[in-house]
């Protein structure tokens, strides 16, 4: 469970990205975060695994207050949280397999990982994740040989190999074409349903968020202005989140 209590974030340049956010996200949910760019979606998401530190309030993950943790404790937290990025963030020159295996790095002492020594179970785990994502046959090709959709699946396999209880996705489909977008979102749906992994995703395309997420959080100027099931969201609510009617690039359309 993730719990935000009066969380605020002010950047050193004075920009206040989050203002007194209070939220509770339960295990197994699929949460879509929507809002204008610059509204604070990314800050909200990245504060959960402390890629960004909050400036006030408390943030609990499974009842552990994380704003004060650091070092080994922080790495342990991050190990249990998978993260997906807009531009996949793979090591392009490395094989798909080795990219996925990096999901296991935090499980072993440094002297082993530095020499690339992973136990066989880990290697199998990596390959199974690739199989789950349907790209096992690409395991030993270089990551940059793959299409965008395949690369994002490699990133998902990397996250799965961490054996996470939660996956954070920061605009996971923003660099993909419409067809691959749907495929990758289906993958997220499958992971959420079959493995019971909580998914929290920032979404640029509102209709995608409504279709795949079970719960929508709307952010405007760093404040949560909507929080509720995606089924009940109305056009008026969307206007209140965006401050205007949606532009056509904010809807994928099918």
């Amino acid at each position: 469970m993730i719990k935000f209590v009066d969380v605020s974030k002010t950047y050193p340049n004075g920009v206040q990205a989050l203002k007194n956010v209070n939220l509770e996200i339960h295990d197994g949910e699929f949460v879509g975060i929507i809002g204008l760019s610059g509204a604070g979606k990314s800050t909200l998401l990245r504060s959960i695994n402390k890629m960004i530190s909050i400036t006030s309030g408390q943030l609990y993950i499974d009842d552990v207050e994380i704003s004060s943790i650091k070092g080994a404790e922080l790495r342990l937290l991050r190990r249990s949280i998978g993260m997906i990025f807009q531009s996949f963030n793979l090591v392009k020159r490395m094989s798909v397999f080795n990219n996925v295996l990096t999901g296991r790095v935090a499980y072993h002492p440094t002297f082993k990982t530095v020499f690339g020594l992973f136990p066989k179970e880990d290697k199998l785990m990596a390959l199974e994740s690739l199989d789950t994502m349907g790209i096992l046959e690409k395991a030993f090709t270089r990551a940059d040989q793959l299409s965008g959709g395949q690369q994002q699946r490699v990133a998902l396999a990397r996250a799965l190999t961490q054996r996470p209880k939660l996956i954070l996705a920061d605009e996971p489909v923003a660099s993909l074409d419409p067809i691959t977008t749907v495929q990758v979102m289906d993958d997220f749906h499958r992971i959420n349903k079959n493995f019971g992994i909580t998914v929290v995703a920032n979404m640029h395309h509102v209709d995608l968020a409504l279709k795949y997420a079970t719960r929508i959080i709307g952010i405007k100027d760093g404040e949560v202005v909507y929080d509720g099931p995606s089924a009940h969201i109305s056009d008026d609510t969307l206007v209140s989140i965006y401050g205007r009617s949606l532009r056509h690039d904010e809807v994928l359309g099918e």
Binding site: R75, G82, V105, T113
Partner: peptide, 26 residues
């Protein structure tokens, strides 16, 4: 490209490990 370093950090890797897996291959 610093994005793999970000990814490695998000998995809980140490600095040395990010260097080994995200910087060294490049």
């Amino acid at each position: 490209d610093m994005s793999p370093v970000e990814a490695l950090e998000s998995t809980g890797a140490k600095k040395v490990e990010s260097l080994r897996y995200a910087v060294m291959p490049q």
